[in-house]
Write a protein that binds this DNA or RNA. Structure first.
Lengths: 300, 300
DNA sequence: ATAATGTCTTTTATCGTGAAAAAACATTTT
DNA sequence: AAAATGTTTTTTCACGATAAAAGACATTAT
């Protein structure tokens, strides 16, 4: 079936939401940048909007005729890219089924199970390999290394090394730097969330990621910045399958972040180091405590 | 043309070299492990050796009939895997031609130029992306970040962080650990090389890699171990295109290694740290001095 | 009974192909 | 003239197909 048009469908849905706000749409190039797609895709979107009576389209005139109904939207599941579908499917296998370390991964089988071509699965596995959870045997299959205690420890070791360095670099940034305003804004968001933690605790992980990425960016080192992808991926999936004490965990973490932010604002290296260590230590504890003790690597 | 049989050809050549040493070949499974290929490939090799009169093959009997001639070997260039071919080709473009940062990379063009399918090029680029030299724009082309001074600095920053930690871990290893024997052997190889440096200086880089990998392995951290792939790749290609003062550079490095090894053997953390820093500092200098000043990243 | 050989099946590596999406070019509108 | 729209070309993404290589199963030899 060659290629799905999920880019178009996703952009279409996002464009529908724009309709509520204005009486007429901007120019094609402008819409393109707004939606992050090419003009070709924008024009497909406009065509369909015209066909379904959402807008009247005549050259530069794109007048909104009616508000979008639920039926106008493409189903959510049709807007995901193949890579996302494969990733989710693979992670579910990894985290829910008894995926033992040492197990082999079969490209063909995975592809059939998910209902996609082998090329996409191969490319996914290559991309995924940098997370350190799988390894390729030359001319042969992939081997699962497993989401083990060892993995978590190795991951957090690097994370701590990188974040301590980034935090120190952050604190040393000149007062004029734009990051201080970003930090200020994040602090405010943390305060907001802290005050409504009882109902909004599940919004924490998104804020968490933005906060840590801001800090890591201060390192000005692509390897440090990129490594946060590994952490983000692990946390994203891991907590989807592990909701125990989510509220308490996040409540503690928000407070740690606030202390960490205060330390950064003080620009005192000693305070920054201490606050950073405190938060990373509890993050490590949280991750480790959620790994079932039984799931251990097989001896080679 | 689907798939080349370079695995077979390469294994065949390596098997030819075995012929010199014995009067008859071992069993098929044994040969398989020896050459690192499956029995299927072993049997193809044996078939051809029989056809070309190199051996007499009857079930378990594989008697060597004659010594291999130069004509028996497959040409070197037919034994490379596609991935190697693409990598070399890509790196040559990157390092010799004026590859400016910000330049876009075209999969189709690359594929046509090298004479391979797009799939292989795509997979190569995905694998290569972890080296931090290229970046993908979603739904679009790859962008070259360039082998710039900034890249070298970011790379060495991580390298130093990781190696200092690994070296400390190494020194703390118990006396019984097998690594001490490995280190002993490497030390001897270093001494050998040092004494014949005038003629064998170009053998250093291979020894260098083995030495540093041994140290990194002591970290017991897959992310640290894997990161050495980035360093090894950079050094491998970079020095191929930059032979200035190779002899002097390597002569200095060998001596630094010997001092580093002595420090490790002393197991004194202070000495290890000092020796490691000294070597890494000069390695960084070497790398930086070989980057043409003109090649700078474009402002985003 | 174990380990090899012989045979058959499955999986991986790679290509060419075609639709989706981007990008380039040409034309019109303001 | 600049910026939009209209049109065409190119590139990316994903598939099925096929040969190479691996792996599994059956048979034979020590």
């Amino acid at each position: 079936m060659s290629k799905s048009n999920n880019v178009y469908k996703d952009a279409f849905n996002r464009c529908l939401r724009l309709l509520d706000e204005t009486k007429s749409l901007p120019s094609e190039p402008e819409l393109g940048t707004l939606l992050g797609v090419s003009r070709t895709t924008v024009r497909s979107i406009l065509s369909r909007m015209e066909e379904t009576g959402l807008i009247a389209w005549n050259k530069r005139n794109k007048t909104v005729l009616r508000a979008p109904e639920p039926e106008d939207f493409f189903p959510e599941e049709e807007t995901d890219s193949l890579a996302e579908i494969i990733e989710r499917s693979f992670m579910r296998r990894l985290l829910t089924e008894g995926a033992e370390a040492g197990m082999q991964i079969n490209e063909l089988e995975l592809a059939r199970e998910i209902g996609v071509g082998t090329t996409s699965v191969r490319e996914f596995l290559i991309r995924f390999s940098r997370f350190g959870l799988i390894e390729k045997r030359r001319n042969s299959h992939w081997v699962l290394k497993g989401f083990t205690r060892a993995f978590a420890l190795e991951l957090t070791e690097i994370r701590e090394m990188f974040e301590l360095r980034s935090a120190a670099a952050f604190a040393a940034l000149p007062r004029e730097s734009a990051v201080w305003a970003d930090l200020e804004r994040l602090e405010e968001e943390h305060r907001q969330l802290a005050s409504e933690i009882a109902t909004r605790f599940n919004e924490f992980s998104e804020l968490d990621e933005r906060f840590h990425r801001l800090i890591h960016r201060a390192s000005h080192n692509r390897f440090i910045v990129d490594f946060y992808d590994v952490i983000a991926m692990i946390f994203h999936y891991h907590y989807q399958w592990n909701k125990a004490q989510e509220r308490e965990r996040n409540e503690v973490a928000v407070q740690e972040h606030l202390a960490y932010i205060a330390a950064l604002k003080s620009r005192d290296p000693g305070k920054v180091d201490a606050a950073c260590r405190r938060h990373l230590k509890s993050a490590r504890q949280t991750l480790l405590s959620s790994i079932p003790e039984g799931r251990q690597a097989q001896p080679a």
